[in-house]
Design a protein around this nucleic acid. Structure first.
Lengths: 244, 244
DNA sequence: AAATCGTATTGACGTGGATCAAAGGGCTCC
DNA sequence: GGAGCCCTTTGATCCACGTCAATACGATTT
């Protein structure tokens, strides 16, 4: 067991109106006046160091979090110790929606690198979204998107083979980097093979072997966590043409 | 034996206030006046025969649906024909939340038996939930619950073995029947082995073999779709004590 | 009561990914 | 800038589940 590391909480006024992630995040679709209202609600930011928890399963729920910088993983843990990574989250994405249902979080959110989130007190968000229709709608879209994403993961876990899962994962990462203005074909993964494996329902050795296989076949160039996608159509083909 | 009383078939206004499912469904937590407001919004009911679609992937999204009678499955289908059952839904549960994110449904909803749903036009629901705080909150809880449920399925698909998955499935069904006032230990499954298998990421033969194994071990009595759970603690033990 | 068809069970065998093991590489933190 | 440790890769072997196949059962129709 690790010793408790003191969490640094820095209170800085968030400003959605100034944020270059606003088109991905909660302010999407709001007019400038409405964004200002949202600014007032988003009280503080919080810095989370690599490997630290933003929240833990069982914690009381009071806020959701928009990722301003860095990235996270969420996982669930069973009594016997087995765990499952349920997602990787990047800037502009929202964390904590799992907590609404029972007023307690049902998973852990852990920073994959030094990160920063905007704290959005939930009761105040509900209050404002009763007044601002576009905010209400955007919030509902964000929740729904999470449900759709989860269905995609179920498809992946339930009916794809190891290499298909990894191909789907890489294409998904690529697409999300692209949306954020980074290269679609070259990026740095912040998670370990073990974490990728947990997410994809595979062991880390299998993930490593699949990477090596992709490299042999000229689909990607892999150097540890640095990935260069060489043949996007090839990866896509791997997904759609199921051989056996 | 009941005698059949002839009834004039009329478009019956859905009436949450009269519905015995209201404690499971959208009206939960609303006061009587608020439930009446919800009544006005829930315009119509719709009957869906066994095997028919309530909606299909790609269909435009305008409403969500509360199940009044019967049961459904949802699934997603890949181009190459592979499909994955993403959930089974029972009375009082809400279908269609996947459609909010893109204004189009992203999965199919298919009746497992002759069923009936209440149609809840979504824009009107958003409108009313801007006025009725408790409705807004209950709706958010329902969406969040779906996300938490999906995480549970990911855990199941990603890190459990065949028999654990089936045990988890049976315990989940039992619990949901119980909440609805049915026996926790004896019930009738509406889905085929193939559908269970798809949901659990297993082949139908594996599901069948796991059922037979449970029967041999005295955990359940299985006769086709009729299930009698004989040893609930035994099933729970199967989940928590991971052997290998 | 027979015929049909979808559903379920069971057996034999094959395989993809898990497990076990060992070595090498590159961060991280002094 | 070096020590230590975590992460990754790769090989050898194993086994849970998939695949293929045959049969049996039950509901529905005629």
């Amino acid at each position: 067991m690790k010793s408790v590391i003191p969490v640094t909480v820095v209170e800085i006024k968030a400003a959605c109106s100034q944020c270059n992630l606003r088109e991905l995040c909660l302010p999407f679709g709001l007019d400038p006046r409405e964004v200002n209202q949202l600014d007032e609600l988003v009280g503080s930011r919080r810095k989370i160091k690599r490997q630290q928890h933003l929240y833990r399963s069982g914690d009381g729920f009071e806020a959701i979090y928009a990722i301003r910088a860095g990235s996270f993983k969420t996982d669930v843990i069973l009594e016997d110790g087995r765990d499952q990574v349920t997602g990787f989250q990047m800037t502009g994405e929202v964390l904590g929606l799992d907590g609404i249902s029972t007023e307690h979080h049902s998973c852990n959110a852990i920073a994959l690198e030094d990160s920063e989130v905007c704290v959005i007190p939930f009761s105040r968000l509900e209050e404002l979204s009763r007044q601002v229709e576009s905010l209400q709608h955007q919030f509902h879209k964000i929740m729904s998107r999470e449900i759709v994403r989860d269905h995609g993961v179920m498809m992946l876990l339930g009916s794809m083979r190891a290499e298909e899962r990894l191909a789907a994962f890489l294409l998904n990462m690529s697409q999300r980097f692209t949306v954020r203005g980074f290269s679609p074909s070259e990026f740095h993964l912040r998670m370990t093979r073990d974490e990728i494996g947990s997410y994809l329902g595979l062991k880390l050795e299998t993930v490593s072997r699949a990477f090596s296989r992709f490299q042999e076949e000229g689909l990607v160039a892999v150097q540890q966590k640095h990935i260069r996608i060489l043949d996007t159509p090839g990866l896509k083909r791997l997904l759609n043409h199921h051989s056996p």
